[in-house]
Computed example of a mutant assay.
Amino acid sequence: MWSGQEFTGESFNHEGFAHQEWRDCRFVACSFRGADLKELVTQGCVFSECDFVDAQLNASEHTNSAFLNCKFDEANLFVTRFTACKMTGSTFIKSNIGGLSINGGDWSFTNLRLQDLRGQKLNGLRLTEADLFQCNLEKTDLRGADLSRATLTNVKLAGADLRGATLDGVDMRTLDLRGTKIDLEQAVQFAKSFGAKVQ
């Protein structure tokens, strides 16, 4: 187990860390390209501007850790669990997120475009200015989520629950809300976006 370790600019490319446990460690500008991180457990760790491109993170678990401006492009995140993690500015281009579990946290400014998040429980999640272009959010629980200024162009929302979600700065006219659960305040916001006068 690593505890309290700090690394800056280190290369861990293609190295094996499967089944390890890291606590309160800090990594700055480190590279984990192609690394084996299967079933890795992190607790309270900080990864800043780290590269996880093509890494194997499947079945790993992360609690109260931060991944700031990290790249998870083409990484394997199958059945990975993030609990109360800060993922600000990280990218997930062409990554495998099947069975991904997100329990709270801050995913602001993340790039999740084209990802399949069907049926996910993202209630209360902060997604401020996240790029969700063409994401599949069908039957996704987004109650109380913060979607302020998020990119929701061509997003699939059928069956999703948006009640209590913050949609400030989102062009409601671009959303297909058929079959979506919304609250009264959102319904008024939606009507106003089309020029209706709600009295």
Rank of each mutant, 00 (worst) to 15 (best):
Asp176Phe: 08
Glu15Ile: 05
Ile102Arg: 05
Val53Phe: 05
Asp183Lys: 00
Asn111Gly: 09
Phe7Tyr: 15
Leu184Trp: 09
Arg118Lys: 15
Gln186Tyr: 06
Asp176Thr: 14
Thr140Ile: 09
Lys94Gln: 12
Arg149Ser: 08
Thr180Gly: 01
Phe92Arg: 02
Val155Tyr: 05
His19Glu: 11
Ser148Thr: 13
Phe82Pro: 01
Cys30Val: 14
Ala160Val: 07
Thr166Met: 10
Glu129Asn: 03
Gly16His: 12
Met172Arg: 14
Leu152Asn: 12
Glu185Pro: 07
Gly169Asn: 13
Gln5Cys: 09
Ala158Ser: 03
Gln134Ala: 15
Glu138Tyr: 00
Thr83Ala: 13
Arg173Lys: 14
Ala35Lys: 00
Phe17Lys: 02
Ala160Leu: 06
Thr80Asp: 00
Phe7Trp: 15
Cys30Met: 08
Glu74Pro: 00
Lys71Cys: 10
Asp171Leu: 11
Val41Pro: 02
Phe92Asn: 02
Gly99His: 09
Phe47His: 05
Phe67Pro: 01
Lys181Asp: 05
Ser148Pro: 04
Arg149Val: 09
Asp51Asn: 14
Asn111Met: 04
Cys135Trp: 07
His14Cys: 08
Gly159Thr: 01
Glu6Lys: 03
Thr180Arg: 01
Ser48Gln: 04
Ala165Asn: 02
Asn111Cys: 07
Gly99Phe: 03
Leu162Gln: 01
Leu184Ala: 12
Asp116Lys: 08
Phe72Gln: 03
Asp183Pro: 00
Lys192Gln: 14
Thr91Gly: 15
Glu39Phe: 14
Asn58Glu: 03
Glu39Asp: 08
Lys156Leu: 13
Gly16Lys: 08
Asn111Asp: 13
His62Asp: 03
Ala165Lys: 02
Asp106Asn: 15
Ala59Pro: 01
Arg178Thr: 14
Gly89Asp: 00
Leu142Asn: 09
Ala191Gly: 05
Glu10Trp: 08
Thr180Asn: 07
Lys197Pro: 00
Ala35Met: 05
Asp51Ser: 05
Ala191Met: 14
Leu167Ile: 15
Asn154Arg: 14
Gln43Phe: 15
Val170Ile: 15
Thr128Asn: 08
Cys30Gln: 08
Val79Asn: 12
Gln199Asn: 09
Gln43Cys: 09
Ala66Gly: 01
Leu40Tyr: 13
Gly98Pro: 04
Gly164Trp: 10
Thr63Lys: 09
Phe27His: 03
Phe133Ala: 08
Gly34Pro: 04
Lys192Asn: 10
Thr128His: 12
Gly99Ser: 13
Phe133Met: 06
